[in-house]
Amino acid sequence: MPVTDVTTDAEALTMTLTADFAAPVERLWKAFTDPSQLERFWGPPGWPASFPSFDFEVGGHAKYYMTSPQGERSHGSWEFLEINAPRGFTVLDNFANEDGAPLDGMPVMRVVFAFEPTDTGSRLVNTSYFASAEALEQVVAFGAVEGSTMAINQLDRVLQSLRDYASGKGTQTEVIDDTHVRITRLVEGPRDLVWRAHQEPELMKQWLLGPDGWRMSVCEVDPSVGGRYRYAWEPVDGAPGEAFGFDGETLLSEAPRRAVTTEHMTGTEFPSTLNDLSLEEEDGATLITLLIEYPDKETRDMVLATGMTDGMEASYARLEGVLEKVG
């Protein structure tokens, strides 16, 4: 993981994050100063960032918000105090309301982004300065150490092209913590079409099948927020296994970028998971990322032991064929 250290200093009133990357300083600078790239990693998993405005000049302001799987938004704003391309910049970072105005009673931080060359690429040293020990403690209590670590650890895939990042990997399953798993798969095809293939039953029935020898017997979808869905599969031609299905609700839909749904195994008392689907396109290819939140570690391990990754890889391989035909 890129992040090598996060340190808080109650005497200096600072929190410092250090991360190393196999990319030159100029590439790291671009990732932090191009809002379309910044949006791809600034929010931690499950809370992706959006930067609706980004006036990158001394005295200029950036407004951003991070959106939870349930659609809640946490807003912030930056005022650019210093810019020294490509070695770093300094901002005044505020918790903000929807209009970007600072929230009363919330900490204000001076944050320095410093980019240093190394023998293997570059290093980020991100230092936040606080006005008091209470402000530092408050931000740490909000989960800033964990959140910033998870966010910056996503930067590797931004610094590479999506094809380089995913080359030869197929479907990848990454355990993030006791209750979160991230699954990624790059497919050849535009994001709009990949989005449709996750929303339209006539397309879903062609690829969302799992291992060979199964068919999708039920595909009922209302993709609007608050809408319900129901899927079911059954083996055919003597294939092993028993029929099963899932049902759930759409919590968030931001076409063609993100959809969040609950998922419950139909006919069981198993608790639901939270499935957070996001799509990123680059040069005609789309990276599918599915962040799954389980109720506990035991449920996570039980699901992973089913061979879920292999079944998803078979489905995604079919998806590429569908995209080629439809596109």
Rank of each mutant, 00 (worst) to 15 (best):
V187E: 00
D276S: 08
E320F: 07
L209Q: 05
L92D: 06
A12T: 06
W195Y: 13
L136T: 00
L81G: 02
E98T: 06
T173I: 15
M265Q: 13
I183H: 06
D5G: 02
A317I: 08
I152E: 01
S272C: 12
D164K: 08
E254C: 05
R163D: 15
P86D: 12
H198N: 11
V260D: 00
L186H: 04
L290R: 00
G59A: 08
D20A: 08
S68W: 03
T309W: 06
T309C: 08
R230W: 01
S36F: 13
R191A: 07
Q160Y: 10
A135F: 02
H264E: 10
E254W: 07
F80C: 07
R185L: 11
G168D: 14
A19T: 05
Q206S: 07
W42G: 01
P45V: 08
L279Y: 04
A133G: 15
A314V: 11
L136M: 14
V140S: 07
S122G: 11
L28Y: 09
E174P: 04
A23D: 10
Q37W: 13
A22N: 13
Q154K: 15
S74G: 10
V158F: 07
A144I: 04
L287S: 01
T90Y: 03
E324G: 12
G59R: 05
F130Y: 15
Q160G: 13
T14R: 02
T7F: 11
Y231L: 02
A197G: 03
E57M: 14
E98S: 08
S50L: 06
T8S: 15
L193A: 14
I292E: 00
T173M: 15
S36R: 15
V303E: 07
T149V: 11
R73L: 06
Q199S: 12
F270P: 05
R157D: 05
P256W: 01
T33W: 13
E324D: 14
G71F: 00
G46T: 04
G311C: 02
K205S: 05
A317N: 12
E249S: 09
T127K: 09
P102A: 13
C219N: 14
K297V: 12
Y231N: 00
A314Q: 13
L323V: 14
R318H: 05
P295L: 12
V218G: 04
E57F: 12
S148G: 13
A10Y: 08
R258N: 11
Q70R: 14
L319S: 00
E146L: 05
A62N: 04
D119F: 01
F130N: 04
G226L: 03
E293K: 03
Q70V: 09
L319N: 00
E98Y: 01
V303S: 11
V140I: 14
L193I: 11
S53M: 06
G168V: 11
F41I: 07
G241K: 07
R87D: 15
I176P: 06
W207N: 01
P52A: 11
D177Q: 13
G248R: 00
L319A: 03
V108T: 10
A232C: 02
E263A: 08
A259N: 05
A96T: 04
L38H: 02
N153M: 10
G238N: 06
